[in-house]
């Protein structure tokens, strides 16, 4: 089958599927409890037009990026130290391995207690989720730095600062970039989880909606709009798709030597 023909086939098959879905829901008169394509589009348009979606999206993204940066700031130096210095690795590995096995979302109650419901608790969960990909990958990359390069630099009289800058960073950068992709993907799904968990709490207190997760909780319990819920889900998927695409493009332009 040629590429072109198979593409046409897929698109038409999906179109038929969507039409069948729409038809089934409309004909059985189940519009109230089942999502359907045109309803999803209508609800999506409504929450986009009145700005609630954009405000929530901005709130979530802002927390994701902050948590991601905190994870990078903590994780990259820790990982590099673990990769370069055997005793740091010995001391830190059991700690990171045991902390890594804990699902980030499980920290929610304590995070709420320490940081409050306002959104900083979600931030904590995101940073916690993002830090481990950075640690693991940075450690692996630092371990893979060519020992001869290190020795050569040392023999030529380079100080630790120069060695880090001129040898360790360039050689670990591609792997760290991969770590960033993984971390950002995990961070994005953690923020939604955290906001959903928080949202259940916030909603009962009648507080304002803060992020995409909270928006969905409100949609679920207050508005009971299935179509908006599906639309929110699609937005979540679209954002994680875009994050990955942008980071991949970024890697190819910033680190052309790492292209595969």
């Amino acid at each position: 089958m040629s590429r072109r023909r198979s593409k046409i086939l897929v698109v038409s098959a999906l179109a038929v599927l969507l039409l069948a879905w729409e038809g089934a829901v409309v004909l059985t008169g189940a519009q109230a409890s089942w999502p359907f394509p045109s309803g999803i589009i209508r609800s999506g348009f409504a929450i986009t037009a009145d700005g609630t979606l954009l405000v929530a999206l901005a709130g979530s993204l802002q927390r994701v990026i902050t948590g991601f940066l905190v994870g990078a700031l903590v994780g990259i130096p820790t990982g590099i130290a673990m990769g370069l210095l055997p005793w740091v690795n010995l001391a830190m590995r059991p700690v990171t391995e045991s902390l890594r096995s804990i699902a980030p979302i499980a920290w929610i109650p304590l995070a709420i207690l320490w940081l409050g419901v306002q959104g900083n608790a979600a931030l904590f969960v995101v940073a916690y989720a993002a830090v481990f990909p950075f640690i693991l990958n940075a450690a692996q990359a630092a371990r893979a730095v060519d020992r001869n390069h290190l020795r050569a630099a040392r023999a030529l009289g380079a100080g630790p600062g120069l060695i880090l800058r001129a040898v360790v960073v360039p050689s670990t950068l591609p792997t760290i970039f991969t770590a960033a992709r993984i971390a950002l993907a995990i961070a994005w799904s953690s923020i939604i989880a955290a906001e959903l968990a928080l949202g259940v709490k916030i909603e009962s207190g009648g507080r304002s909606v803060a992020g995409l997760g909270q928006l969905m909780v409100a949609t679920l319990y207050v508005k009971r709009d299935v179509n908006a819920l599906v639309f929110g889900m699609l937005v979540i998927g679209l954002v994680s798709f875009l994050i990955d695409a942008v980071l991949r493009r970024l890697r190819d332009t910033l680190l052309p030597w790492a292209r595969r």
């Binding site: 897929v10 098959a13 799904s189 989880a193 959903l196 699609l234 979540i236 998927g237 679209l238």
Partner: peptide, 25 residues
Amino acid sequence: DVFIEPVIEVLRPISAIAWIPIALL
């Protein structure tokens, strides 16, 4: 494959977490 893979590729970025509200419903 021509049908399954596009569907998977559309669903894959939607994390399980995003399904929680729908699952609750």
